[in-house]
Design a protein around this nucleic acid. Sequence first.
DNA 1: GCGACAG
DNA 2: ATCTTGTCGC
Length: 228
Amino acid sequence: MTPVVTHEWSLSTTAAKALQNELVKKLVFTDLPLESIQWVAGADVAFHHDEAFAAVILLHFPELECVQECYARVRVRFPYVPGFLSFREGEVLLKAFAQLEHTPDVILFDGHGIAHPRRLGLAAHLGVLLDSPTIGCAKSRLVGSYILPALEKGATSNLMDQNEVIGKVVRTRTNVRPLFISPGHRMSLTSAVKISLACTSRYRLPEPTRQADRRVAEYKRIALAQQE
DNA sequence: GCGACAG
DNA sequence: ATCTTGTCGC
């Protein structure tokens, strides 16, 4: 999987903001029916100081069986600044995506899609670069207001920014803290929620993201241990 | 100026 | 994100 759009990753926050305002214009929001999905990917990043480790996992849908796992490691300069997470995780993620053999029908990210100050969170940003359908599955809020959804799995409520619905607060597991789902690129809000729930079995996180999270931690542990 | 703030 | 074991509760 190769990006269709490329750009520098070591930017000032001012230049990064200008780039976000350009890339956001390319976003497209369309439905992605469950019936059209065969391959789903999950991506996550782990850090050790300025070293970033990424894992991209490919699963067959709807059984959610893992069929490939890709890893990458890179030194990053960009610090963590709320609203600019993609500039810290993007480069290492693309390096991992480059190793993917099958092009996934949709990619789930650990972070927001358009539920972002400038509507270009991690999932939206990488979606534009890869020109792929993407979904943001964040564990906490960055922007927007909401009321908590009912306690049962599947319950949802709107994530609002002023008068705009920028995402859904989704209960992916009964009696457990909800997830913040928002579309990235080539994705509608309703499809993002349906797909996320279809990818969730017995845990809070959807299987693609959960798998990526587990494996990247293991990859980082082994990589750092081998150095010594 | 003060508080909020994905991972 | 990361530092970190056991423990209470569904």
